[in-house]
Amino acid sequence: MDGAVALGTFLQHLINGLTLGAIYGLIAIGYTMVYGIIRMINFAHGEIYMVGAFVAVTAFTLLAVLGITAVPLALVIVLLVAILFTAAYGWTVERIAYRPLRGAPKLAPLISAIGMSILLQNYVMLTQGARPKPLPPVLTGGITLWQGEGFSLGITYIQLFIILLTVALMTGFTLLITRTALGRAQRACEQDRTMAGLLGINVDRTISMTFVMGASLAAVAGVLVTMYYGVIDFYIGFLAGMKAFTAAVLGGIGSLPGAMLGGLLIGLIEAFFTGYVSGAYKDVAAFSILILVLVLRPTGLLGRPDIEKV
């Protein structure tokens, strides 16, 4: 019987970890895409996700006031609204803080990005207040998968929704990158921006679209996290951003499947470490594993090893 309880607990951690990992993965894609195309760490990306979460809170609350309570309808509206506004923020961040710095010394855009991160955090704090924003549960209930003696294994509808939506988005996104003209332009810019420009690709526009896409996925992550935890504050972007960036590097920065894999791994490490060892040190575990992976495989799990050009 103890064995069953142990197995049940294990599976529960697995489900929790996958949920968390899906959210990290969605944010990590933004880091990885931007890095792939302009070789910079978009430090403000975590704040973009936070902006998405705040838009979601406002939208959910407003819908409740307006009396739109049908869950599927409300979800669709909130997702669209969050994507729209957050994408606008993503576009603007690139336009203001990064585009003027193209071709500048390597660290200049990084500092600009840190400045943008500080700016956005304080902007949201000033306009929305510093107190945490609670949100009543949107999706309640779940499925009990396994009812044993003294424990039960279940997956909530929110978890299910998060995992399914992430899988759907990832599939759609992979198609977007591999099958459309925009995706082709993006991959071309990744390889050689000058050449892509000479061949008539609008490089500025392609880079802008990369930010817009990254921000859209971050917005979805923001909506999901708001529903999952039921409370957010202006500071969530920093930690989530850092974990997602860790995930992107772990998976091999520049690689889309890598970002998703890295996200899942970070989520699982967090869930299992919290469950079995200590919640306080879960971030230490995540970072330690990252360092270990990079020492053994400096390009991350799915990153292409590059032969040093001499």
Binding site: P100, A104, A108, S112, G115, I118, L119, L120, Q121
Partner: peptide
Amino acid sequence: MLLFGAAMILIMV
């Protein structure tokens, strides 16, 4: 802090 962040961006640009 808001101004500080903005100043960092402006100086870099």
